[in-house]
Design a binder for these strands. Structure first.
Lengths: 337, 337
DNA sequence: ACTTATTTTGCAACCGGTTGCATGAGTGCT
DNA sequence: AGCACTCATGCAACCGGTTGCAAAATAAGT
């Protein structure tokens, strides 16, 4: 059915090696041979089978793109950027959805069956066991949006979540809020923990400000909404740092339901700067995470690892900045603190 | 490095065929042989290389998941459903981003290089040339969210966009709007054309209602917002049917900017019922597209084609229903029209 | 116990490519 | 013209599996 290297060789009247060589760059082929082969190949509509060649070369150019974030719109952008960036480098993303997977061993087996050249983990909530399992299986790993530590076990690209928490805290302090709250995503996620840590440690220097904390069950609109409803029932703070924009927007929704005003009654600051945050019906003040930079840096790191698998794990940390919109009271309203 | 079939055979002291057979179901192996091999395999941590086996079996269990919709949040859900459904069937999605691809031949070559078993096209805006190109290359194709015709060239699963347009029109008629507009996505997309066709043909029976039409440059929030801004400048209708929820939400944003009220000054009805449409800050009346049913039906169709590639192209059409929220005036406000 | 039918196993060829090595063809130099 | 040297080509083995076929082992039948 589909033409093979042998077909091309026969039609061109040359050896199979000759055909193979014209399609692998760096191989030694004369100009006339190349012409001959390319003509035959074009006539037959031949293109080499990457999978077959992978048997001998050991490279499939397949990259496992692993995630469990399929309910946060920011990840559509992440997938878009990743797939495009990979394609530009001649790599193919094999998408793996870990939403209902708890055992790293299964994922490792799966990706080894397809002998992927590398794995990109794109998630802020995946337990670190997954990344380590891939690495232990000898597969180059880059964890994008993962926890950044000083001695990383695998390559990590992301933001300093602790610093992001500090940034949020400073922002609330500067605006004179005296009772503030942290509303995180799933408590077990490292991103949640770090954001909380930065937030509280920055506020620790200001004992006059009271700090509460709570956790939504997931990084989703509904979870944020439910969590804020509970907070409103229990007696709320003046302002909240939500661990993600979708949580913030869910929270805003709950606040609006009670006919409370933002930022009049409650202030909200989110994290991510997803597209929707900028919609004027939302207008969320938030901490921008540099998605595009994180993705491209991850791919760059992955490319480097494909060339040198022994490369030492590295952490790449990007700075965040606050995008001021309308869900915190303005700076000049700051109290004397 | 990673153990191969040969390693297992040697350790178990049996032939390579024996090992191969214990891992392919339906093959003839005795119970004691199976035990022996499985023990050795477990000790070595062996799992068969799907890609190598594909050489002889001709199946890679790889399915190309092709799309160019990476800016509409509804597609995150689509990807989630597709990847999960494929995984459950033991198939792997190879994600292909066609955002900047115009030549079907490139995509065909790409997917043939990886000898995918089939291709799922998930897009409402991809030109039909792509689907046909895959089919002509001998690859089973299912086009999800594609144009449904009575004599499809490839398998298509989706909604009847013409009927959806009619549904929107009837809804506006019933509410007594006298000047209505269609605000579509990209004019060239078949989904846009069909929705418009249904919309206008239904309204053709009501000459007293004036109908205008316009097209946003993309299925995106910004495009919808810009388009509505232009409409507001030029003199707007009483109600609009927007070809997609993201367009609707963009339009709502533009309307809100001008301090006009919805549904007081302008009514909006969308299409898709994306999650955000239900957020109470949006509260969009819209036509629900049964995403999950479409995805699962597509996968079912793909599975059937893998068993019988000669299967005749089939169109599967799902019904849509209106989700009434707050962006159209209530029914009892209908005029005498 | 002996023949026959059935299942299990190993051999070897093959899937679609790649690559080390040896041979053959060119090229430059004296 | 003769020699050494470089470059291009083909042969054959190999990558990690599968599978038709025949031999070996087991089960069944009398």
């Amino acid at each position: 059915m589909v033409p093979t290297l042998k077909d091309v060789a026969e039609r061109a009247g040359v050896s199979r090696s000759a055909v193979s060589r014209t399609f692998t760059d760096g191989a030694s082929v004369s100009a006339k041979m190349r012409k001959l082969v390319e003509k035959a190949a074009a006539e037959l509509g031949y293109s080499p089978n990457v999978l077959a060649s992978s048997l001998t070369t050991g490279r499939t150019k397949l990259i496992g793109l692993v995630s469990n974030n399929f309910h946060n719109p920011i990840f559509l952008e992440v997938f878009d950027l990743f797939t495009r960036a990979l394609q530009e480098k001649g790599l193919r993303p094999l998408l793996v959805n870990l939403t209902h997977e708890t055992d790293p061993a299964n994922s490792v087996r799966l990706l080894r069956q397809y002998s992927v050249d590398g794995v990109v983990v794109a998630s802020s909530t995946l337990p670190p066991g997954f990344g380590k399992a891939f690495r232990d299986a000898g597969v180059p790993v880059v964890h994008a949006f993962g926890r950044v530590t000083s001695a990383p076990q695998v390559h990590v690209v992301g933001i300093d979540n602790i610093e992001a928490g500090r940034l949020a805290a400073r922002s609330l302090i500067a605006r004179g809020y005296r009772r503030v709250g942290f509303m995180g995503g799933p408590e077990a996620a490292s991103s949640t923990q770090d954001r909380l840590k930065g937030f509280t440690s920055e506020l620790a220097t200001r004992p006059e400000i009271s700090v509460s904390q709570s956790f939504a069950s997931a990084y989703s609109f509904d979870a944020g909404r439910r969590e804020m409803q509970a907070l409103l029932d229990a007696g709320h703070a003046e302002a909240y740092f939500c661990g993600d924009d979708v949580l913030s927007i869910g929270a805003l929704s709950a606040i609006q339901d009670r006919h409370l005003s933002v930022p009049g009654d409650i202030g909200i600051i989110g994290l991510n700067d997803m597209e929707i945050a900028g919609w004027n019906s939302v207008n969320l003040t938030t901490i921008r995470q540099p998605i595009s930079e994180i993705v491209h840096s991850s791919i760059e790191l992955m490319s480097a690892m494909l060339l040198d698998p022994a490369r030492l794990p590295e952490a790449r940390i990007f700075a965040c900045n606050i995008v001021e919109r309308g869900t915190l009271r303005p700076l000049n309203a700051a109290g004397t603190g």
